[in-house]
Design a protein around this nucleic acid. Structure first.
Lengths: 231, 231
DNA sequence: AAGAGGCGTTAAGACGCCGTTAGGATTCAC
DNA sequence: GTGAATCCTAACGGCGTCTTAACGCCTCTT
């Protein structure tokens, strides 16, 4: 059983702390990403879908709690807060807006790594499912980022793939247009429902047998789209 | 929406600490159980299936880590360790044998309650079944936005679905016309009682066995409509 | 018994949303 | 600097959905 590398995103502005954690995390066998601002952190979370996020509350451009709220609007990725502020009200506030753990500086790398393991264990039920999604002639390997249709590999652009996997993650359920735009485009300002129509059309052409009569990629008029499961 | 009371099991030998936590937990709205030894703790966990377990590592009859191991052999109940030992190796050991959090004494009640809420949040996705509404031949999955009649999926337009789910939300009770127009049409100016007649007719055609003699979607003349529950 | 008001039914027109296509802008690699 | 891939944007035709009107039935009133 080989598992895909685990990605950790660090959102922290102090260079000293970043260096310290980079060493600790890479030493622990994790792939490492870093952001110095809240904006950058949100962008990287959208692009790379890390498995865990380490978040310093004291950011230059955005309140940590606001970042938590905006992240939780579309993502359930575990967040471990790292803060110099040890006040109880800070902890309660962060935990109640969706943080999964709260670590007060200074802390040891061993404890941090142990708490990351706990966070991954919690997220596991979602990830422990087969990393391969099968439906009809489709076969999607979410770790390899590979899509196979009727035995033939099909190339998807980043946005197409993002749209597709978002529907897969909510398989069977209707996903509203607003939610799709949020999860795929990451809350970018100019995101319009028009984008969805264009990329859904492209997806159907690449994946559906009869693109004009989609079997799985269905429209819910006025609401959004759904990946239909049963036949 | 009323939810079942949440049970918390405390495994702790110091009477003083027990008194302190009893007040904190009952004040927080939790049902409270306590055990003074590891043996008793395991027994109570089996009998009462608490939703969260608070575990002091320093027990008289059993090492805390051993208790963790024996508990995890059959139960995934969230465990928050409470300990006077703040050594990093203690924390790592406890977290790695299955604890979900580690709190070092002394701590505030607010933080404890917040961390209990986090633990409950983690346990939730597994326990949260899909909210499916069943009545006669009907089966409505409110998360999937899917309506099934006699095993056959039926497509509803946004207004039809809105009207139907509004009646479901007030199942059994009469919903006035004014209230329906408000909840479904969202305070649009031109909303008329005529709309209700049209869409109720469409709903009955799509859902009722004999649309001219509705069994569930009943009219309350002069008042509004009601979704009848009993047969 | 006749009238009035409320309700169910149907159909047709208006409207908005969706699918589709294509061209230009942008980014990235070489 | 050039090329390819990808993304954004606009335009248009078609179709589903919503709105609206007309008519018949029923019930209650007087």
């Amino acid at each position: 059983m080989t598992s895909a590398p685990v990605h950790v995103l660090l959102v922290e502005d102090e260079p000293q702390m970043r260096r310290f954690l980079r060493v600790a995390l890479e030493g622990g066998g994790y792939r490492y990403l870093e952001a110095g601002t809240g904006q950058e952190g949100l962008a990287l979370a959208v692009q790379h879908r890390p498995d865990v996020i380490l978040l310093d509350l004291g950011l230059p451009d955005m309140d940590g709690l606001e970042l938590m709220t905006r992240l939780r609007a579309w993502s359930q990725t575990p967040v471990i807060v790292i803060s110099a502020r040890g006040q109880e009200t800070d902890k309660i506030g962060a935990l109640d807006v969706g943080a999964d753990d709260y670590l007060t500086k200074p802390f040891g790398t061993g404890e941090l790594l142990a708490r990351i393991r706990v966070a991954l264990r919690h997220a596991d039920p979602g990830a422990a499912e087969e990393p391969v999604f099968r439906l009809g002639r489709w076969q999607v390997d979410l770790t390899k980022r590979q899509v196979v249709v009727a035995g033939q590999e099909v190339h998807l652009t980043p946005l197409e793939y993002g749209l597709f996997t978002t529907l897969i993650r909510h398989a069977g359920k209707v996903v509203t247009q607003r939610q799709l735009l949020k999860e795929v485009w990451g809350g970018v300002a100019g995101a319009q429902p028009l984008y969805l129509r264009v990329y859904m059309a492209q997806l159907r052409h690449k994946l559906e047998e009869d693109p004009s009569r989609p079997r799985y990629l269905q429209t819910e008029p006025g609401i959004g789209y759904r990946l239909r499961l049963e036949d």
